[in-house]
Design a protein around this nucleic acid. Structure first.
Length: 255
DNA sequence: ATGGCGCGCGCAGCGCGA
């Protein structure tokens, strides 16, 4: 199975990119974030035409998550449990015997903002939930835009970024908690070097200069980590015309 | 050099993302 994540920064604008990428890669699951699309406008027909069914949880203008798969999907969550949040950032579904949880973690804006505290609270609630999910599902995938660069090797200029949102210690501690309860960062199962990123600023030719951050992740339960075969950060779509500022990350599993 | 781009909304220019 091939399972991928991609923040596409508006599905309406990037639909052709998503279709092109599906055709080239044929993932069994593609998790999308920042669809920015209301459910009634979701392009169900366009995906069905290429053999993918869709599950989605959207809102106007902001946020929005979706799962695409040729397999049958049974949605089990569209929000964090017991947590009041109007923002559509969560979509969990059972797909091909796996529990797949697609997340668009809050950005946080800056460490002195209300949005930062919302992010930390959201992550705390996520951590509680994931602990119970992990007990229930031996084959669990948690993937998406985490808006956290876990370590300095995931940051192009750690000194410039030190202490800022996306790399601050409380955010990194929340990410490490997910690893401490048993999840594996699939990328680090295969690659230890720095310089591998999933997001680059649109400005200042950041992609050309590889000035990016690794903030999009695929976390695997121990049983799935044992079955993982390869990980790819596909930089190609970032070079297409009018690209998303994120690029797809895909793991291959021997299931 | 702290801007720089691109999105939605909606028709000017702002809020937001990372």
């Amino acid at each position: 199975m091939k399972i991928a994540t991609w923040n596409i920064n508006s599905l309406r604008v990037r639909l052709a990119h998503v279709l092109r990428w599906l055709d080239a890669n044929h993932p069994d699951v593609l998790a999308l974030q920042e669809t920015k699309t209301e459910d009634r406008n979701f392009p169900v027909v366009e995906f069905e035409a290429v053999g993918y069914s869709a599950a989605f949880c959207g809102q106007p203008t902001y946020n929005g998550v979706a799962l695409l798969s040729p397999l049958t999907m049974e949605v089990f969550a569209t929000a964090l449990p017991d947590y009041h949040d109007a923002q559509k950032r969560v979509l969990g579904a059972s797909i091909g015997g796996l529990a797949v949880l697609n997340l668009y973690v809050p950005n946080g804006q800056s460490i002195d903002s209300d949005k930062y505290h919302y992010k930390l609270g959201w992550l705390a609630q996520l951590n509680q939930w994931v602990a119970t999910l992990l007990k229930k599902h031996s084959q669990l995938v948690i993937l998406g835009d985490f808006n956290i660069a876990p370590e300095d090797r995931d940051v192009y200029d750690p000194q410039a970024w030190a202490g800022q949102v996306l790399v601050s210690e409380p955010e990194r501690a929340a990410f490490r908690k997910l690893l401490q309860i048993g999840l594996k960062d699939s990328f680090r199962l295969f690659q230890q070097m720095g310089g591998h990123y999933s997001w680059w600023d649109y400005r200042a030719a950041a992609f050309r200069r590889n000035q990016g951050l690794r903030i999009d992740h695929i976390l695997l339960s121990p049983a799935l980590a044992d079955l993982s075969r390869a990980i790819v950060i596909d930089r190609e779509p970032r070079g297409w015309e009018r690209p998303s500022d994120h690029t797809p990350v895909m793991v291959e599993l021997g299931v």
